[in-house]
Amino acid sequence: MGGTIDVASRSMLMSESTINRHLGEPALPVAPLPEPRERLDPRAQILWRISGLIQAIVFTGIAGGAMALAHILFDLGWGWIFGVPVVVAVLGLALAMIVPAINWRQWRYDIHEEEVDIRRGVVTITRQLVPMARIQHVDTRRGPLQRRFGLATVVLYTAAGAIEIPELADPVAASVRDRIAALANVRDDL
């Protein structure tokens, strides 16, 4: 128990005096949450663009197929048959180009001694904090596309689902994984 509270190096520190000690009132400290600083690997953008392109192609294909079927079944006009897939393709292409840049710029994480801190989101910005003591295990995962780029995803498992930090360079991912494993383990051993 002893060594847990003296962690003064945490970025999200608040003194005990700031905590309202009256029962029933919120024990809210004044200090806001400092933003996490670490970014994902820049190559993430290229990878996301490629997977975005693949998705755009797939969706265009589906739209084309659906329209062809509609043509056969309901005798839909040619304008629809070419129009819809073209719109889907243009939209998909635009999203595949724009979204990865925004996503990468927003994606931040930090591995503190007490918690993992994540901020991400394209339209809706999400902040997530995972206490080390609640992490059951942690591993890295590499998809086929990621392997080509030498990138990996770190996955944290808690009793309430998994949380991912994607597209880190292999050595970074390994060190992040080991650091989280070590910090999470230290808590378990106490």
């Binding site: 007490e114 918690e115 902040r127």
Partner: peptide, 9 residues
Amino acid sequence: RLLAALSPA
């Protein structure tokens, strides 16, 4: 502030 207050630390 609620998020920070829920920190284990």
